[in-house]
Simulated assay, not measured.
Amino acid sequence: MAATELSEIQTELRKSRDNLGCSLKSLRHNHSARAGDLTLLRKTASGPVRSEIATPAQDRGMILGMSLLPGHRRRIREGSRRYDRVFDQDAIYIREFDVDYAATAEGAFDFLLIELPLHSPLRLRPTNEALDPRLGQMARGLLDWLARPALLDPLASDEIGARLMLHLERNHAITRRLRRRSRLSPAQLARAKEMLMSVEFEGLRLDDVALALDLPRNAFFRGFRETTGLSPYQWLLAERLEQGRLLLRLTQLPLVDIALACGFADQSHFTRMFTRAQGLSPGRWRRAVQA
């Protein structure tokens, strides 16, 4: 076979697979999103699927995989090791990308994958046999977002990453650093709230506020939550909703104008968040309080 022909075949094979070596044709869901420093992926295949997965060794950090379904079987080759595994629901594996990995996957599967970058300060304990029901609960709450990540506020996406990093550090880190409770100072808290509420900071990220306070991102996230009892995004959402309630009660402004005035992306976003918090849509709530 000519070298050019072989190269063309290899190129076509790469196009038919994702960057984990999974066949794209076999995947029903193939979602991905960024959450802070983490890359989150969902890989799903239905029916009596048999597929080959191959990821060559590379400088790429670490990956945690979690099975959202029971009963998936894999025959695995990881470096020089070979073993079989049946995944229960909430079963996880953690591995480095620095060794060749290949697997024959049998049966339907639904995996949430969390990829840590190469230079992440967090190092996880590699494992082939572990369960993490709490992470499974968190993962199932992320599936709608993973299908449409652009609909979520960037600050909320960052917080997903921060919450996952805290969970991984507490439960799967090679060494866990002892941390003292670290509340923000009054000046730091005031500056953080000012930035969160300011219209000048549209598309604000956790890194932006942390940098202004001269804190690492996760330290700011923990400190804000310990000081206020809420995460930065939860606090911001509560403030926006309170502004919305005030405008609904005291004005006759259209809902779309109230949504934009309070910092929501659009009327639909405002309605969804308001209904979740109040149990009533903004229109019904306004009619009830103005009756």
Results as ranks from 00 to 15, higher is better:
225 R>T: 10
216 P>E: 14
237 L>I: 04
201 F>W: 14
268 S>D: 03
116 L>G: 00
88 D>Q: 15
179 R>N: 01
212 A>F: 08
117 P>M: 13
93 Y>E: 14
59 D>V: 11
198 S>A: 11
195 M>V: 04
90 D>I: 15
107 G>Y: 13
262 C>H: 07
61 G>V: 06
18 D>T: 07
179 R>P: 00
56 P>Q: 13
111 F>E: 06
27 L>Y: 03
38 L>W: 11
256 V>A: 09
235 W>E: 01
181 R>F: 12
34 R>Y: 08
221 F>M: 10
135 L>Y: 05
131 L>V: 02
185 S>A: 11
22 C>E: 06
40 L>Y: 09
287 R>L: 14
224 F>H: 04
253 L>D: 06
149 P>Y: 07
19 N>H: 12
143 L>W: 02
87 F>P: 00
9 I>P: 00
34 R>M: 15
271 T>N: 05
288 A>N: 02
212 A>S: 07
178 L>H: 05
206 L>W: 02
171 N>M: 12
245 R>A: 01
231 S>T: 13
89 Q>G: 03
11 T>C: 08
182 S>I: 10
213 L>F: 03
132 D>A: 13
72 H>D: 04
216 P>D: 10
4 T>S: 08
227 T>G: 01
101 Y>T: 02
289 V>R: 11
18 D>C: 02
29 H>I: 13
1 M>W: 14
268 S>G: 02
215 L>P: 00
63 I>F: 10
197 M>S: 04
78 E>S: 07
131 L>E: 04
103 A>F: 09
50 R>L: 14
263 G>H: 02
192 A>R: 02
249 R>W: 10
95 R>H: 09
263 G>R: 00
144 D>H: 04
241 L>D: 00
218 N>Q: 13
64 L>R: 09
287 R>P: 00
221 F>S: 01
284 R>L: 15
